[in-house]
């Protein structure tokens, strides 16, 4: 077991090194593809803390992701805030919004929880859409400059290669934090709750409060992902708050495997690469996605990574 863990760690290290030097060997366009995979992967991994680990399907996580995007975009636009501080604000903002929304949502379970997250998510979307003077309405926030990073680092963030490498570092650090959370005693309690909340409650653990903790941490990382996304796409728009944006991390977690930590990242890579690849020769990408998703839900519910790991464990 420890040998396999070592192997996986080594593999991840190799991938990370390869990703770091991506601008040196891959076509320029793949910098953008890789940055998108990393950011959406972080969003999906943050989301999966609630979905895969705590067993609750949220259809409102775009609220946190989009909120993070708006926070960073507005700080950059109005105050020329160094990016590091804008990202910290997005992380905190996502967590705070998740605290407010989660306070209500964790009272419910199963499909009622899902519907309530959908309602709150769409409330945030509606506000961004209609409060034109503050949020820019349907146009969102555009035309902000990405200036300095802060923290004494001299980075040319306008250069996509530099921004990509920064994204890689931040996503790696954030992913590591998330991973440590999932293997901590807290993370184990979450898993136990997903399997049998009654039994966990019986041991005296306040289930509802733990669900809220999980929701807030998940919202904070989603907010951070949104904060990285706005300077990458150069816009914070209401679409990042819409329920269809909430569906993306769900699809990614399913594709990669929601029971594994790296599943959402793998799912993000599959999703973005497939989309890039398929849309280059047909605009029927949604049809293809629908069929793949249907097959995954019916036959490979544990996702690609999850299924692969199952096979490996069976053999070993």
């Amino acid at each position: 077991m420890s040998r396999r863990a070592g192997l996986i760690t080594a593999l991840i290290a190799v991938i990370l090194v390869a990703l770091w030097f991506l601008p040196a060997w891959a076509p320029y366009f793949y910098i953008f593809v890789a940055a998108e995979i990393l950011i959406l992967g972080l969003f999906a991994a943050g989301f999966n803390l609630v979905f895969g680990y705590t067993g609750m399907l949220s259809l409102g996580h775009a609220a946190f992701f989009g909120f993070g995007a708006y926070v960073t975009a507005m700080l950059l636009l109005h105050f020329d805030t160094p990016l590091a501080f804008a990202l910290i604000a997005s992380l905190a903002g996502g967590g705070l919004l998740a605290l407010v929304i989660g306070f209500f949502c964790v009272r419910l379970t199963e499909v009622y929880f899902t519907m309530l997250t959908l309602a709150f998510g769409m409330m945030v979307f509606s506000v961004a859409q209609q409060w034109r003077s503050f949020t820019g309405g349907s146009d969102g926030i555009t035309g902000f400059a990405v200036g300095s990073f802060g923290l004494g680092l001299d980075l040319t963030l306008g250069n996509p290669a530099v921004y990509y490498q920064l994204t890689l570092v931040i996503v790696t650090l954030a992913g590591l934090c998330l991973y440590l959370i999932t293997i901590s005693p807290f993370g184990l309690i979450l898993r136990a709750m997903a399997e049998n909340p009654e039994r966990v409650a019986f041991t005296g653990i306040p289930v509802r409060r733990y669900r809220l903790y999980s929701f807030v941490i998940s919202g904070a990382f989603s907010g951070l992902a949104g904060g990285l996304f706005a300077p990458f796409t150069r816009v914070a728009s209401p679409e990042t708050l819409h329920w269809s944006q909430s569906a993306e991390p769900v699809l990614m977690s399913i594709l990669g495997g929601s029971a594994t930590f790296l599943g959402p990242f793998i799912g993000s890579a599959i999703f973005v690469l497939l989309e890039t690849w398929i849309t280059s020769f047909t605009d029927r990408w949604m049809l293809f996605l629908g069929i793949v998703l249907a097959l995954m839900v019916m036959y490979l519910r544990r996702g690609l990574l999850g299924t692969a790991l199952d096979r490996l464990t069976k053999r070993g």
Partner: peptide, 16 residues
Amino acid sequence: LEAQAAIQAMRKLVYQ
């Protein structure tokens, strides 16, 4: 009909 998708499309057209 989304700015972010259009910007990604533009980068793809130019760089890829």
